[in-house]
Computed example of a mutant assay.
Amino acid sequence: MKKIIYLMMLTTLATLTKVKAQQPAEFTGAKATLKHYNALYIVNTADEKRISGTLRNIKNALEDPRLKGKLTVEIIAFGDGVKLFDKTAAFQDRLQSLKDAGVILAQCENTIKERNINKDQLLPIISYVPSGNGEIIIRQYQGWATVHP
């Protein structure tokens, strides 16, 4: 009887050890092994909730300890996304903070031409590119991550 109990205990211990050994190591996310990263955030919606979410995502990326000091971010706005840079919109303070953190704020000139928007209606802290789609294509081929929340 002692042998049977001993064998049962040994089998149980061997099973527990095997189960423990098969458990994966704790996942802590991807390692930022490159010296630098680039991300292009695409805004082509006037939906304030989505725009706010995009601005929050950018702030979170800039504060990610793995990317701190290694990340260049650009926001490209086109189409309905022109609302992001409108002086009357509620995003001016958040955009200024992002600009101060080095984020590039770019607006598609095609959009403002097509919609007859005067640049005076938009925030003075932004830059302009000929086309939003052209910016996306060029950045993609330059190796930038494109994010379209």
Rank of each mutant, 00 (worst) to 15 (best):
I112L: 04
D80T: 08
D93R: 10
P65R: 08
P24C: 08
I104A: 06
I58E: 11
L62V: 08
A77S: 09
L55G: 13
S97T: 09
A32T: 12
Q23Y: 14
I58W: 08
I117E: 09
Y128I: 04
A89D: 10
G69I: 08
N44K: 02
I117A: 10
F78V: 02
R50D: 14
K70L: 06
G81E: 00
T72S: 13
T54G: 12
I126A: 06
L67P: 14
K99Y: 05
N133A: 10
K49T: 15
I75P: 07
Y37H: 08
G69L: 05
R115C: 03
T111R: 03
L123N: 04
A77Q: 04
V43R: 01
P130S: 03
E63W: 12
T28V: 08
A46E: 10
G29R: 09
T111K: 03
T72N: 14
D47G: 11
A46G: 09
E109W: 04
A90R: 13
A61I: 13
L122A: 06
I125P: 10
S52C: 15
I112D: 01
V82P: 00
N118A: 09
I76D: 02
Q22T: 09
Y41Q: 02
T88H: 09
V43Q: 02
T33N: 13
Q107K: 00
D86N: 07
N110A: 07
I112H: 01
E48W: 06
Q121T: 10
R50C: 12
T72K: 12
A89F: 04
P65M: 12
Q92D: 13
T72P: 13
A25N: 14
D100K: 06
L98K: 05
E114A: 15
N44S: 04
L122N: 07
D86L: 06
F27Y: 13
I112K: 00
T45E: 03
A106K: 00
I51N: 14
G53K: 13
K70G: 10
Q121A: 09
S131W: 02
L84K: 04
D100Y: 01
